[in-house]
Design a protein around this nucleic acid. Structure first.
Length: 566
RNA sequence: UGGGGCGUGGCCAAGUGGUUAAGGCGCCGGUUUUUGGUAUCGGUAUUCGGAGGUUCGAAUCCUCCCGCCCCAGCCA
């Protein structure tokens, strides 16, 4: 578990909180009770994080509580694995439901009782139409439906049939319990919606105790009422269900009167955020699991090294409204960098090594140089890094024929090796194919620490690592999982998968302290980005995941020159 | 005339009849800098989907129109 989310976020304002303030002020409610109601049929993603932050955030801001309730009404799709993963993710995000962990399945007896009550009031009936027939009878968007022949069964007949459904006398799909509302309603949800269906399946929690299971519409609102939820916040697609939600609350002897409010679900560029699609990515092996660092899942972000605080900050910045919106992933990236810049310790690491020999540096000599752990946080202190005659620098930090604005190393150029010395390149050594394989350089002993006593300046500072002291690692570099901001907009989303979303770098050279960082906790590799040790990493085979690259001004300059620029 | 929603800069999003139309992200430019990072300064909507109307005054009220999203699972 990570740290707990800090309570009252000041000045958070949106239409849901407006409603709550009014309800509190008018006395409609005495306390605020919300809930986060996942169905355990997949892993949580960042869209859920938005909802979690909203529901738990509201509870803490208004001194109320937020329940974690599993909407486990469909045993054919739900699994214990998901129940466990979801709890871990919510906790990691920094939220605590205390004693208030619930399952819709805990209410199965009560729900059955409510159903019987509806039948007794002649507000529900058992229908024996087949699924296909029910669809036909339902009509279309523009044509009213037709009443089922079963609609006028007597109460006692319905009671008997429903009891037998419960007893397991019938096959899946043979009967269904429906609310008796209005087959001509413009709202399809009111055309005698199904309340119970027969499912001869084993439920993760109730096992084989039941043969009938309540539908979402019947279980959700009634569970809200049973738990005393005051504000049931869900996404826009349930707006049409609100009349049914209210109808069921009104016609059922529930202990409280919750109200439903709807907000827009999150869409993120370069991502898919639907459980069905995420499930497909996992099942078809397009990614390496639900927690693949490229996945927009909570567990994926965690594995990538993204801090929970960044996700919470993101959720707050995007706001809560009723308008469909697609947030640019750059905002998420900004939140991640913003948090990591302040929190992550700095280290020196070379991703694509190029050997450097300091010709005038004594062979066999090593010195310990002070390096600052985090310039944004003095309490992080300093550490020693070893400097010696043979080093590695980044291949990208040398150019044989550098353009004007290139501030790094080139033949005859002098740069600063971070925290160490001014280094001048004397010669680039190539192999038979013309590839540069080594740089011969000299250092200025007077510049130890990185400053010249004569006041001479240098344009660039580059990172390095001592060859003899460096440890090897494999590093996973990540890019968008999809090639376009709106995957699936033109063809199936799988065709938009970015084949280069993952690049494995081997033989990376890290400063020795990087042998033992905490799994999932990002550190900054100076000038490169943030990286976190992967859970599969072992002492003899280190594996780091790129969490997020640093903003790269040089890359921008290059892109500009290449495109239209001069 | 099926029902339900939504339209404020490239992306989010405040705004609820009188403000120079907040803020963030992004982008552009400057400064600082031992991370081309960070920080910092400045620029980035004469205009709120469109057209009418009400009003001394409208993004905010009215009318009509246009566009987009959701609903015909015994999924949630």
């Amino acid at each position: 578990m990570s740290e707990t989310a800090p309570s009252p976020a000041e000045g958070v304002k949106d239409f849901v909180r407006d409603v709550i303030r009014e309800d509190l002020a008018s006395g409609r409610v005495a306390e605020v009770v919300t809930r986060f109601p996942p169905e355990p049929n997949g892993y949580l993603h960042i869209g859920h994080a938005k909802s979690i932050c909203l529901n738990f955030g509201i509870a803490s801001e208004f001194g109320g509580r937020c329940h974690l309730r599993f909407d486990d009404t469909n045993p054919t799709k739900e699994e214990i694995e998901y129940i466990d993963a979801i709890q871990e993710d919510v906790r990691w995000l920094g939220f605590d439901w205390g004693e208030h962990l619930y399952f819709a399945s805990d209410n199965f007896d009560k729900l059955y009782g409510y159903a019987v009550h509806l039948i007794e009031q002649d507000k529900a009936y058992v229908d024996d139409l087949s699924p296909d027939e029910i669809r036909e009878y339902r009509g279309t968007l523009t044509k009213p439906g037709t009443e089922s022949p079963s609609r006028n069964r007597t109460v006692s007949e319905n009671l008997d049939l429903f009891a037998r459904m419960k007893a397991g006398e019938f096959a899946d799909g043979s009967h269904v319990l429906r609310a008796k509302i209005d087959m001509a309603s413009g709202n399809m949800n009111m055309r005698d919606p199904v309340l119970y269906r027969i499912l001869n399946a084993t439920h993760p929690r109730t096992g084989d105790a039941w043969h009938i299971y309540p539908t979402y519409d019947f279980a959700h609102g009634q569970s809200d009422a049973i738990e005393g939820i005051t504000h049931s916040v869900c996404t826009l697609e349930f707006e049409d269900h609100r009349p049914l939600y209210d109808w069921l609350i009104k016609n059922t002897p529930v202990p409280s009167t919750p109200h439903q409010y709807e907000f827009a679900r999150l869409n993120l560029t370069y991502s898919v955020l639907s459980k069905r699609k995420l499930m497909q990515l996992v099942n078809e092996g397009h990614v390496e699991g639900w927690d693949d660092p490229r996945m927009p899942t909570i567990s994926g972000y965690r594995r990538r090294g993204i801090p929970a605080a960044a996700l919470r900050d993101f959720a707050q910045r995007i706001g809560v409204t009723k308008s469909d919106s697609t947030v640019e992933v750059e905002l998420l990236n900004h939140c991640v960098r913003d948090h990591l810049n302040k929190a992550a310790e700095r280290r020196l690491a070379v991703l694509k090594p190029l050997k450097v020999v300091i010709e005038n540096y004594p062979e066999g000599q090593t010195e310990e140089i002070d390096a600052i752990n985090n310039p944004e946080d003095e309490t992080a202190g300093k550490r020693k890094v070893a400097f010696s005659r043979e080093l590695y620098i980044e291949q990208d930090d040398f150019m044989e024929d550098p353009p004007k604005k290139f501030f790094r190393l080139g033949p005859g150029r002098e740069v600063r090796f971070r925290y160490a010395y001014f280094i001048t390149c004397r010669e680039a050594i190539k192999d038979d194919d013309g590839n540069i394989i080594e740089l011969r350089c000299t250092y200025d002993p007077e510049t130890r620490g990185g400053n010249a006593p004569d006041g001479r300046k240098v344009k660039g500072t580059i990172h390095w690592v001592s060859a003899a002291h460096a440890i090897d690692a494999e590093i996973n570099m990540y890019d968008h999982l999809f090639n376009r901001p709106d995957p699936g907009a033109e063809v199936d989303f799988l065709n938009d998968i970015n084949a280069a979303s993952k690049t494995v770098l081997t033989g990376c050279k890290l400063e020795p302290s990087l042998a033992q960082t905490k799994v999932g906790e990002a550190v900054q590799f100076e000038r490169q980005g943030y990286f976190a040790l992967d859970r599969t990493s072992r002492a003899d085979h280190l594996v780091y995941n790129q969490t997020m690259a640093l903003r790269d001004g040089w890359a921008k300059i290059q892109a500009k020159e290449k495109s239209g620029g001069k």
